[in-house]
Design a protein around this nucleic acid. Structure first.
Lengths: 71, 71
DNA sequence: AAATAATGTAAAGCTTGCTATACTTGTATT
DNA sequence: AATACAAGTATAGCAAGCTTTACATTATTT
């Protein structure tokens, strides 16, 4: 599934390394999430949403349902 | 992490098998989630929240942060 | 141009979500 | 008591999230 991690990270001028450190994962994990290589675990999704001050539902784009907030 | 899957399932009088079928997972998965043997994937968490007409943030209890709605 | 920071790719390996199968226990219905 | 349904335990195995290491590419700064 798609997500807005890169978009939110860039808008806050945070590097992948800084985000990785804040979430206690490796930089590889951030790269792979941003580039859609795999999905986050629920725990990581939550930590990421918390970091950006948003919710999982707004950070991740669950296609095929009514979660179409903001297009 | 804890969750309200069993609570929500029972309040709707749905069996584990029915929930499993609706979410396209096995009954084992539902049992293990309800009994805290492992965490849902983000995809499954989302499908489950959709099924119960709620959000991931309300269905799962992320301890150690401010997600204490109705806590 | 050289150095450094930031982003990206690749692949082996560990950990954990989930399946599949089989068996047990509790409860309700007859 | 017998049958049937719902919930639980156990475990082997596959699939996916994440780590680790190493190297390549594209800014940015000096």
């Amino acid at each position: 599934m798609k997500n807005r991690i890169q978009e939110m990270r860039k808008s806050r001028k945070v590097t992948q390394q800084e985000l990785a450190d804040a979430l206690s994962v490796t930089r590889q994990t951030i790269i792979s999430l941003e580039n859609g290589r795999y999905n986050a675990s629920l725990t990581l999704a939550h930590k990421t949403a918390q970091y950006f001050g948003t919710t999982i539902e707004e950070l991740f784009i669950f296609e095929g349902d009514e979660n179409l907030i903001g297009g």
